[in-house]
Amino acid sequence: MTTPSEINMTVDCSGLLCPLPVYKAGIALNRLAAGDLLELICSDPGSLEDIPAMARQRGDTLVSATAEGGRQVFIVQKGGGA
């Protein structure tokens, strides 16, 4: 289980539609180092499929995805590390 202290960056994309969550996540992940964890908060129903697809395409790892009441929280680990 990921604890908040392990998160390296949080990006809140509440109220933003595609492509903005992926855009903001991409910028954040580019700033992080391999192995770092990004917490992404989204509300666009499209993000449920978009964020896993983005992680797959970038070579990052989707550590967890939770959705509750229209609020989604994703943890993405930046790839490229060991």
Binding site: C18, P19, V22, Y23, A25, G26, I27, M54, Q57, R58
Partner: peptide
Amino acid sequence: LILATTAASMGW
């Protein structure tokens, strides 16, 4: 513009 920014955000 949406497709291109998304692709670039994914490292394409």
